[in-house]
Simulated assay, not measured.
Amino acid sequence: MHLLVNIFSESWQLLLEASAYILFGILIGGLLKVFLSPSYVARHLGQGRYSSVLKAALLGIPLPLCSCGVLPAAAALKRQGANNGATTAFLISTPESGVDSISVSYALLDPIMTVARPLAALISALIAGCIENTFNPPRPQLAMAADLSCAVDGCCSGIDCPPAEHANHHSFPEKIRAGMTYAFGELWGDLAGWFFAGVLLAGMISALVPDDLITTYLGGGLLTMLLMLAFGIPLYICATASTPIAAAMILKGVSPGAALVFLLVGPATNMATLSVLVGLLGKRATAVYLSCIGITAVIFGLTLDWVYAAYGISAKAVIGQAGEIIPYPLQLAAALLILALSIRPLVATIRRRLRKKADGAETGCGCSGGCEDHGEKDKTT
């Protein structure tokens, strides 16, 4: 009983930390739906085996979204025609970096770590996206099949209506309302079930893994990187919040390379993210995502330690502490709002699965919506 209480307590804490970022990510996803032209996405992120990956990776570097907040935005991109490789690259580069985390890295760490962090994020995103599109090449007919109709109310098909004419069909407030309706309805409905399943799994890991193991025997070397990798993959922590922890680790004797592994893996992976990715991209793409993050993080960690040692640079971080970005009352309000928004899609998902199971037509699909991209996604599984 005590263990169950600890698991739910840890899950609740994770929900508190993630909810505000999830809401922000949902908002971004809704705005992308109505303001980012589907034809532009289909043209730049849906076609081109490698150019689309580069564009998606560069797009994600400055965005201040964590591994949970990036999910709705990535889902919106994919539904508008982005291929699996581009979506994978966006999912990696976005949470590992961001204008906020870069600025905090400069304040609490040092210029080398500040440059290494987004550089490693970019390279790992490019590798993962290119591998995915190499083994699962984008199919032009699927990319061009993206929904080009008006995202506000479907007033035109997007093909027969000139863009200049359609730009005058709807006011800015109408577009905002349509984006929010999509974001907190269909978009979050597709992700809610996967997200809460991952939160519970993350709570189990957080309750069972002692905290002091993370900073034990992490002085440097391959074993240190692998240990940090093992600890960082299942845990949820945002890029900005991970920075002061990394600084404290370095002050305690953890190598800068090991700290970099934590900075890359922690924000980009957690059980909630991985469970959603299986539903969004498929098992193979999720395996590519996780493998590329882990391998490139270890390589960059070892390389960074070599740089510090070769040039005799001290890794001691600037003493400081980043303040709480989101106060507890806002965290609580965001968590309660997420729970309220999730009741309807979770109930609908449970009913649909029970109905499919009763009919003998269970497909394993984790989406709550129309799942237009299943034809492509099934190729990855």
Rank of each mutant, 00 (worst) to 15 (best):
S51Y: 01
C371A: 08
L263E: 01
P38C: 01
Q331R: 10
A309G: 07
R352M: 12
A116G: 03
A178H: 08
P62E: 02
H166P: 00
L31P: 07
R139F: 00
C371S: 05
D359N: 15
Q331G: 02
G364D: 05
A128V: 12
T181K: 15
G198A: 05
L302C: 04
Y311L: 11
C292A: 14
S342T: 11
G279N: 06
E372K: 11
G29C: 05
A248C: 03
V70E: 06
F8T: 07
P118A: 09
I214R: 14
V209T: 05
T349I: 07
Q13W: 12
I92E: 02
M144E: 13
T243H: 04
L281Q: 01
S105V: 06
P64I: 04
P111A: 03
G189T: 08
L31F: 12
L264Y: 10
G193M: 11
A247L: 05
R79L: 11
D153R: 13
M180K: 00
A192H: 06
I127S: 02
L63S: 03
L337E: 00
G266Q: 07
T181L: 13
P256H: 00
V318S: 14
A42M: 06
H374I: 15
T94W: 10
R43T: 11
G85W: 03
L187G: 11
M271S: 07
A317C: 09
P327L: 04
Q141S: 12
I214Y: 14
T380V: 09
L227W: 13
D147L: 01
A75N: 13
R355N: 13
L274V: 06
A143Q: 07
V41N: 01
K377V: 11
D160A: 14
C365D: 15
A361M: 10
N6Y: 02
N270T: 04
P111R: 04
I325G: 12
T303P: 00
V298R: 03
I22T: 13
Y328R: 14
F300E: 07
L31I: 12
A241Y: 01
I326E: 02
A287D: 03
A18L: 09
L304F: 06
I233E: 08
A183C: 04
